[in-house]
Amino acid sequence: MAENETVWEVFIQSKNGLAHKHVGNVHAADKVMALENARELYTRRNEGSCIWVVKASEIVSSETEDSEAFFDPSNDKMYRHPTFYNMPEGSKHI
């Protein structure tokens, strides 16, 4: 009897200028309902200026076992960070 409802992941932009942030999910039969359900659940305290909903099944995620291959290679590229560089003493605004 327990046929699964469609799960939608919800992203809220709390105000203009900020990025949308994942807040959780809702169940809904269609996208209009998903958007309204997200509004009811996640913006009860005036938290939103924009909502995205996306079917959970459409999200592609990297796997934990790939995390070394994915993320460790960037570990030793310190030259991408500004603190890597030696600035002459007395130099400002750089």
């Binding site: 409802e5 809702v26 169940h27 809904a28 309204e36 359900n37 009811e40 659940l41 009860r44």
Partner: peptide, 11 residues
Amino acid sequence: PTLEEDIALSN
């Protein structure tokens, strides 16, 4: 009829 709708009705 669903928990989501329960919240909507209360709103």
